[in-house]
Design a protein around this nucleic acid. Structure first.
Lengths: 109, 109
DNA sequence: CTTCGTTATATTTGATTAGATATAACGCTC
DNA sequence: GAGCGTTATATCTAATCAAATATAACGAAG
């Protein structure tokens, strides 16, 4: 028996960043490509693009720098702001997990 | 911009209790009827029954006392154990929300 | 100027899930 | 024993969501 959690941040009532989107951002950062990131996460390119597009629509600062065409067909880089989103969310998530594990031990189920 | 969370407890890898199930249990406790609880939550009886059945299958102690037939066709009562599940989950959930609100203020998004 | 792999986008198909419907058992009440 | 409203369960339909497919634009490189 174990406790699970999912947290996310909303903006204007719409999901802004959460577990899946941050995971996707990390893969984009690692591969420098939306399509490559989608492939490693076994997700359709369309879905990945939609998720990233929602993030950028809601974000006040640019999250991605995209290059269409050119060397190797192009690619996508994650901005410093995007990287800070990843870092902040992951620490927040880990803090939450630690907190819940401690609380969970107090329960009698 | 606001932070949201969902937490749940799994048993044998399957969801045991979470937000929706606890909400349903509360309604059953209030109405003393699965069908009435399903109606107020705008959920099909089948779905409500399935959720409650999963809870009881995984729980080590009885959560519900069901009466088929009889006065008013029967009904369902929540056991003391079931009520303790409700109470414990709700306090845990509220503690988590308070914790996250505090953590959230530290972030720069 | 052709090739390449990427971003970008619409459309269509498929699968999974939720919902509606139907039916039976049950036991108290009248 | 007929009626009632509930629990219990199967089956069929609808709707939603994910996936696959198709197509175009793009720009560096050879």
């Amino acid at each position: 028996m174990e406790i699970k959690s999912r947290l996310w941040i909303e903006k204007e009532g719409k999901p802004f960043i959460g577990f899946g989107r941050i995971n996707l951002l990390k893969q984009v950062d690692k591969t420098a490509s939306i399509s490559a990131a989608a492939k490693t996460l076994k997700m359709s390119y369309k879905k990945a693009w939609n998720l990233l597009n929602e993030i950028e629509t809601l974000a006040e600062q640019p999250v991605l720098v995209k290059n269409i065409g050119g060397k190797n067909g192009g690619g996508t880089q994650v901005t410093d702001y995007g990287k800070s989103l990843i870092l902040q969310f992951e620490t927040l998530n880990q803090n939450c997990i630690n907190f819940l594990e401690a609380e969970y031990k107090k329960l009698e189920l």
